[in-house]
């Protein structure tokens, strides 16, 4: 007697048992994305983080940022290396004094700290380098007070952070 293949089995064979997801086109897209992102990826240089409410001015400069103390000056806050200073910028803007006492106090403490480190570790050297991230709508009368105070505290290598124009 011949062995007849079961009918049931035939029916099962017609139905695809495994569902294969076609991801080729998605991979094409991902490859393009990867190439684009790798092109815009920069592994070198100092990355300055800019707060969301701070709009830097645009400039044609080509100089890359260098490490230094970061001072952020937005429209309503003065932040030194991540610490918000208890100052009222409107009052500072109106005052006749060029010096901002709170900022000077904070900065001189930092300079002293650096000096203590360099006394122990000669490889650490206080360069007096600072980067000011200022909002583009800050008037000069406020800017000069901050730059002046930094200069008085010993930060004399001053640079201004800007967005580079294309």
């Amino acid at each position: 007697m011949a062995h007849a293949p079961s009918k049931r089995r035939n029916i099962r064979a017609k139905r695809p048992s495994l569902f294969v997801l076609n991801i080729t086109s998605m991979l094409d897209m991902f490859t393009i994305l990867i190439i684009f992102l790798l092109k815009s990826y920069s592994a070198e240089g100092i990355i300055l983080t800019i707060p969301a409410d701070l709009y830097l001015p645009y400039s044609t400069t080509q100089s890359a940022p260098e490490p230094g103390l970061v001072i952020e000056l937005s429209k309503n806050a003065l932040i030194v290396d991540g610490t918000v200073l208890p100052v009222n910028l409107d009052e500072i803007e109106r005052s006749d004094s060029l010096l901002i006492p709170e900022l000077l106090e904070n900065l001189t403490a930092r300079v002293r700290w650096y000096e203590q480190i360099s006394a122990v570790n000669p490889e650490v050297d206080f360069t007096g380098r600072m980067v000011l991230e200022g909002d583009r709508e800050v008037p000069f009368r406020l800017l000069k007070k901050i730059l002046y105070t930094c200069g008085q505290a010993g930060f004399i290598n001053q640079s201004l952070a800007v967005f580079q124009k294309e």
Binding site: I50, S63, A64, P65, E66, L147, S159, A161, F163
Partner: peptide, 10 residues
């Protein structure tokens, strides 16, 4: 980095 940051030296 979509917005390049540069510096202007004083």
């Amino acid at each position: 980095i979509f917005q390049q940051v540069g510096i202007v030296n004083l």
